[in-house]
Design a protein around this nucleic acid. Structure first.
Lengths: 195, 195
DNA sequence: CGAAAATTTGACATGACTCAACTGGAGTGG
DNA sequence: CCACTCCAGTTGAGTCATGTCAAATTTTCG
């Protein structure tokens, strides 16, 4: 379980973890299993746990006044899930997070996150780099949302994350792209005909 | 000049800066002035400087294959400007950054950023909180881009950043929102008639 | 096998884009 | 200080992409 996370951390830092550090990480991350459709977070609650996905598929989404769901983020193995605003500022979340497949997670609370930050240098480095990656990815997603057609958005997404097409149902991907499930269905038809 | 930045830093940290720290900041941030339309960064170049805006208005934008400009980010006093991907990973940028008004900036290079990070705790805290704010803002902008109508996107933006309406020309705001200048003009007309 | 969920498809509505023309104001140079 | 240019903003007409809704079909999974 934890080894998956140790391997993940290795990618961010040159120096390997000491066994003390590993013990500290084990002590501060709590394993959690979710069954399909179970919630990690519901809108209105405070996000107590930030989760590293060891195995499974998740989504974070909001629900607007008309009852429409909007997928904000999708997550697979080696990704993180949580509402950062709620987690750090202790405010009620606007988002839901649930499991689209059975999930194995490693969860951390705010206090324990701070503890690791102070005692495991590699942990801070990971977070810094993660923020960087996140901002870059967000910029790109934003650009494509603002500038590209539905078809281009879809093909770009699948090219970048081929796993998405297999792991997430189509209407979830449509929502993630900000297009209707009907339009995505038609887009895929046209793509199949063209090539 | 630097005092604006010291005041800004105060907002992030409980403990005030020592005079040593202030000296270090003075030494590592270089003042830079841009005239209107001057570039801080051009696509293809590596982003050498990350800039804190002491005074002025800036935009970061990309240009697509059809020659269309897409505004990714806008910046006013107390905001930061730079392409993080290019700055940290030393890769050529896809973006342009230019001044929409005469600007006073404080610029920092990658090495000097690291130096401050290692020697001024408040600097690291600022960056961490900034990342957090940025992610929250990005999430919201993304949600509105994917889910809301042109009219709602515009009113939300102006409500959140009233200064934008005064400081940025309308076609720039349109591009920032991902709508055409024509549509924004009509949206504003309709809003004026409704209320 | 059967119920529920996901996807596809058709008909129709509409919001937003494009293009081009026009207006008005700001800045510049003679 | 006027004439001229340039740029931003407005407006109209026509088009197109995408949304909506409802029904039919297929797939999934208990």
């Amino acid at each position: 379980m934890y080894n998956v996370y140790f391997d993940y951390l290795k990618k961010f830092s040159a120096t390997p973890l000491t066994s003390d550090e590993k013990a500290l990480i084990r002590r501060n991350f709590r394993p959690l299993r979710l069954r399909k459709k179970e919630y990690l977070l519901q809108a209105g609650d405070i996000c107590e746990n930030y989760a590293f996905i060891v195995k499974g598929a998740m989504r974070m989404y909001s629900v607007d006044d008309r009852g429409q769901e909007h997928v904000i983020r999708l997550g697979l193995e080696d990704w993180w899930m949580g509402d950062r605003e709620s987690f750090f500022n202790l405010v009620p979340s606007r988002y839901h997070i649930d499991a689209l497949e059975p999930c194995h997670l490693l969860c951390i609370t705010r206090e324990r996150d701070l503890e690791l930050l102070n005692n495991v240098p590699a942990y801070g480095i990971m977070k810094m780099k993660l923020d960087q990656q996140m901002e870059i990815a967000n910029n790109q997603r934003l650009t494509s949302a603002l500038a590209d057609s539905a078809a281009k958005r879809y093909t770009d997404l699948i090219q970048r994350y081929p796993a998405f097409a297999d792991r997430f149902p189509q209407h979830i991907i449509a929502s993630y792209l900000g297009i209707s499930k009907d339009t995505l269905s038609r887009v895929k038809l046209k793509l199949k005909q063209t090539q």
